[in-house]
Write a protein that binds this DNA or RNA. Sequence first.
DNA 1: AACACGATTTCG
DNA 2: GAAATCGTGTTT
Length: 171
Amino acid sequence: MTKRLDRDFYSRDVLDVAPELLGKRLVRIGEDGGISSYLITETEAYRGMEDLACHASRGRTPRTKVMFGEGGYLYMYLIYGMYWMMNVVTGAEGVPQAVLFRGLREASGPGRLTRLIGLDGSFYGEDLVNSERIWIESNGPAPSYTAGPRVGIDYAGLPWKDMPWRFLMDL
DNA sequence: AACACGATTTCG
DNA sequence: GAAATCGTGTTT
């Protein structure tokens, strides 16, 4: 049986949510109404204002404001002028956290992932709990996983660049 | 108004 | 190893 993840799932700490998203199914309803679903295989956690790798650590701006709201909403942003990154907000309202989706079984890499399933800035603020075009479903038993340092954030410095907040589903 | 840069990917 | 490419935040 499968069921859509609810507000309570996303409202917990990002360090609980990010690894638990592994093995779950990302469901996408296309422009033509067709259903596609993808197995989530890699995620990363960005945790609050103190985490210097988290965009919200520089404060609340038009771009980061969704992260300060309640969990379950998408935080989309463009990187290097060409790739949209997909994140889902987690934690309680007022606590800026988000999970970056880095890989699906069908596409490895955050930029390739959004290109595959057709996501862009128009999905900023989309609610995965109520959206008609994208959501996540629980699916079978939780897979084992491996944690390691996050990618591309060395600029954040210690201890943040070494925190093992990247989660990869084991094969 | 101008500038610097990034949670990446691709090609050589 | 380096280019591509532009929204966002910061500085002038």
